[in-house]
């Protein structure tokens, strides 16, 4: 092949955020209130529905659960699914 250019088609190394930091797509930022979050309140691994439902896989299944804001796109699914209503979507400050 005469084309040595690695970039003749779109490709990316499989990695967290292979396209770069997509967190800047976000308009609304999920903030977890650990005072309401079930695993934190019960002090044992439980619930983690935010981790399960997040389509980007950016929530950890740890107690407390943590969100990787470099890649969280702000879709709000975690807030919708949280049974303890511990997550609020807060407008990103401009």
């Amino acid at each position: 092949m005469i084309y040595k250019d690695f970039n003749i088609f779109s490709a990316a190394t499989s990695a967290l955020g292979e396209l770069g930091k997509t967190g800047d797509w976000r308009d609304l930022k999920p903030i977890i209130d650990y005072g309401k979050c079930i695993p934190v309140v019960k002090d044992k691994p439980s619930c983690f529905l935010c981790w399960l439902y997040c389509p980007e896989g950016v929530v950890s299944s740890s107690s407390p659960p943590r969100i990787d804001y470099d890649y969280c796109k702000g879709c709000g699914i975690c807030a919708e699914e949280c049974p303890a209503k511990a997550i609020t979507m807060v407008e990103e400050s401009k």
Binding site: A12, L19, G20
Partner: peptide
């Protein structure tokens, strides 16, 4: 050197995770 072929690209050039 595993790669993901044809991920979404942006209208502009952009740095990947590396």
């Amino acid at each position: 050197n595993p790669r993901n072929i044809n991920p979404v690209v942006f209208p502009w050039r952009r740095a990947d995770s590396q």
